[in-house]
């Protein structure tokens, strides 16, 4: 279940309360988020939409522990991340969050395999264990035959699927995807979205997706709109598939 009224019970996986983010530019303050509430249960698939500059990326950064809010709190699986120190937060990110970016952000000098392996280098896994994890992740995204390829030898869609493999390889608590299909053509975008569907449906992943594209948003169980710093629900999206 996803709710935005701030009254959900305490079992929700991701919980934001009274979340606010204010930027100061010159003399004036810009309130990007204000008193935002959100509850997301495990294995949910939520899409965030909204005009450019409405604060979608800002929200994801706060939920993923990349940025700190001006007010309010974020609690994930019982841990209040908005109270964690820098180093602790970094460790928490490594353990709990998988990021998928619009620009893929693969490291060009590393092969697909090595890019996916990166997050595992922070774990205590042996080389053999890492290998099997990476192979599994690449198989899930359908690129097990491209392990030795470098990013420049892959298409945009394939690069993004490697990005997703990197996000899921350490088995994070949830995935944050910021316009993962923004740079892709329709067909590649559909492949990536189908992949996200499967991750939720078959692997029980929790996915938070930011997108401009209504067709992409429809893959989610619920579409939320950012308006004036808070989330509002739109007409219910397609039923769970």
């Amino acid at each position: 279940m996803v709710s935005i009224d701030g009254r959900a019970d305490s079992k929700s996986l991701i919980r934001a309360r009274g979340l606010g983010k204010t930027y100061r530019r010159g003399g004036e303050q810009i309130h990007v988020l204000q008193g935002l509430n959100l509850d997301v249960d495990a294995s949910d698939f939520v899409a965030f939409m909204g005009p450019s500059g409405s604060g979608k990326t800002t929200l994801l950064n706060l939920l993923g522990g990349l940025d700190v809010p001006s007010e309010g709190s974020v609690t994930v699986a019982g841990d209040e991340i908005t109270r964690m120190s820098g180093a602790k937060l970094t460790a928490w990110r490594a353990r709990h969050v998988g990021f998928v970016f619009q620009m893929y952000n693969l490291i060009p000098v590393l092969t697909a395999f090595q890019n996916v392996e990166l997050p595992l280098l922070l774990t205590g896994l042996s080389k053999a264990e890492r290998r099997s994890h990476v192979e599994t992740a690449l198989a899930v995204v359908g690129l097990d035959d491209r392990m030795r390829h470098y990013p420049r030898q892959l298409s945009g869609g394939q690069e993004q699927r490697v990005g997703i493999a990197r996000a899921i390889v350490a088995d994070p608590t949830f995935l944050l995807c910021d316009e993962p299909t923004g740079d892709l053509d329709r067909k590649s975008a559909d492949e990536v979205l189908d992949l996200l569907d499967r991750l939720v449906r078959d692997h029980g992943k929790t996915v938070l997706l930011v997108t401009h594209d209504p067709r992409a948003a429809e893959h989610a169980r619920l579409i939320l709109h950012l308006e004036k710093g808070v989330l509002v629900e739109s007409v219910t999206a397609s039923p769970p598939r």
Partner: peptide, 14 residues
Amino acid sequence: TRELAVLKAVGFRD
């Protein structure tokens, strides 16, 4: 910058 930022996002320390 991007690559280094990604490393940090993924959880590598400063």
